[in-house]
C-alpha cells in the first residue's frame, strides 16, 4: 500500500545544530511545530487583546473566554491559592490545545503525538507538584499517601495503593494524550487511504468509497472534539494534582 499511516509521525531533520553530549541536536519538524504553536498562541492572545476594549471584540472575547475558562477550572479544583499556578496551567492548556489543533491541518505535524513530548509535560506537572508540595509542607506532604479517617489495620494497604496511583499519574497523563492523538490520526489516515485506493478501482469503487469518505468527515469532526477534550483533560488533571500539592491532607 502506498499510503503509510505511520509516516505522518516521522521526525524529519530540517537543520542540524550539531552534537551535545553524543546526542544529535537539530531543528526538526517537531521543533518547528512547537515554535509555531508557541508563536500562534502568543500571536493570538496579543492580537486579540491589542484593542483592550471595554466591550470586547469577537477575538478579544475568545481570548477572555480562554482566560476565564482556565481560571475557573483551576479555582474550582485548587482554590484561590492555586491561582499562583495559573500561568503554568494556562500555558499547558494552550500549548496542548494549539499543538492538537495544528495536527488537524493536513500535512502538519502533531507535536503531541510523540510520547516523549507528552511525557515531558506530564513530568513537568508532577515535578512541580512534588517540589512545590515539599517546599510548602515539608514532610507534611507525605500525608498525601495516608488519607485521614482510614482505620489503622488497612492503612498500609491504602498507602501502597496511594503511592502506586501517584506514580502512575505521569504515565496515565502522558499516555492518554499521546495515545489519543496517535490513534486518532492513524484512524483518519487509514479511512482516508481507503477512499483513495477504492476510488482507483473504477465506478464500483467510487460508490464503495462513499462509506469511508463519510467516516473520514465524521472522524475529522470527532478529532477536533478530541483535540479540545484532551487539552482540557490534561489541564484539569494538572489542576487536581496541583491541588494535592497545595492541600496534601485531602
Amino acid at each position: 500500500m502506498a499510503i503509510d499511516p505511520i509516516k505522518q509521525f516521522e521526525i524529519k531533520e530540517i537543520l542540524s545544530l550539531g552534537e551535545i553530549g553524543g546526542a544529535d541536536i537539530a531543528l526538526t519538524n517537531s521543533g518547528l511545530f512547537m515554535i509555531l504553536t508557541t508563536a500562534a498562541v502568543t500571536a493570538f492572545l496579543m492580537l486579540a487583546t491589542s484593542g483592550r476594549t471595554l466591550v470586547p471584540s469577537r477575538w478579544q472575547s475568545i481570548a477572555e473566554l480562554c482566560y476565564e475558562f482556565v481560571a475557573k477550572m483551576l479555582r474550582d479544583a485548587a482554590g484561590t491559592e492555586g491561582m499562583r499556578f495559573f500561568p503554568f496551567v494556562f500555558s499547558l492548556f494552550m500549548f496542548v490545545l494549539f499543538a492538537n489543533l495544528f495536527g488537524m491541518f493536513p500535512y502538519f505535524f502533531t507535536v503531541t503525538s510523540h510520547i516523549v513530548v507528552t511525557f515531558a509535560l506530564a513530568m513537568l506537572v508532577i515535578s512541580t507538584v512534588i517540589i512545590y508540595g515539599c517546599m510548602k509542607h515539608g514532610f507534611g506532604f507525605l500525608k498525601l499517601f495516608a488519607p485521614e479517617g482510614v482505620p489503622a489495620p488497612i492503612l498500609p494497604m491504602v498507602v501502597v495503593i496511594e503511592v502506586i496511583s501517584f506514580l502512575s499519574r505521569p504515565v496515565s497523563l502522558s499516555v492518554r494524550l499521546f495515545a489519543n492523538m496517535l490513534a486518532g490520526h492513524i484512524t483518519l489516515k487509514v479511512f482516508a487511504s481507503f477512499v483513495v485506493s477504492m476510488s482507483a478501482l473504477g465506478f464500483a469503487g467510487w460508490l464503495g468509497a462513499i462509506l469511508p469518505l463519510t467516516m473520514t468527515v465524521a472522524m475529522t469532526a470527532l478529532e477536533f472534539l478530541v483535540s479540545f477534550l484532551q487539552a482540557y483533560v490534561f489541564a484539569v488533571l494538572t489542576c487536581m494534582y496541583l491541588n494535592d500539592a497545595l492541600h496534601p491532607s485531602h
Binding site: 521526525i11 551535545i20 546526542a23 544529535d24 541536536i25 537539530a26 531543528l27 526538526t28 517537531s30 521543533g31 512547537m34 515554535i35 504553536t37 508557541t38 500555558s91 500549548f95 510523540h114 516523549v116 513530548v117 515531558a120 509535560l121 513537568l124
Partner: peptide, 11 residues
Amino acid sequence: PSQLLWLAITF
C-alpha cells in the same frame, strides 16, 4: 534530545 530541547525552549 532534539524534541526535548525544543520543548524546553518553546514551552
